[in-house]
């Protein structure tokens, strides 16, 4: 089985794009399978909650 880096070179890309929508759109233009994530900071960016969630979720 080829490792994931080789897959990157030789297999069709399947991309999870987290953030800038344009990146996903340009991949779509190139007929790449991509899912766009309109990312938002976890816990609204509250560091105490982020730490807690790290352990609980």
């Amino acid at each position: 089985m080829q490792n994931k880096i080789e897959e990157l070179l030789h297999e069709p890309l399947v991309v999870i794009n987290v953030g800038l929508k344009g990146f996903a759109e340009s991949l779509e233009q190139q007929e790449v399978e991509v899912v766009q994530i309109d990312w938002v900071p976890p816990a609204g960016g509250d560091p105490e909650m982020i730490d807690l969630l790290e352990r609980l979720l």
Binding site: L8, E11, L13, V15, V18, G19, F23, P41
Partner: peptide
Amino acid sequence: EGLVEKPFANLAAFSI
């Protein structure tokens, strides 16, 4: 959620 949507993804791109 993305991982659920694309279980066979081979690349994640981040601009956050």
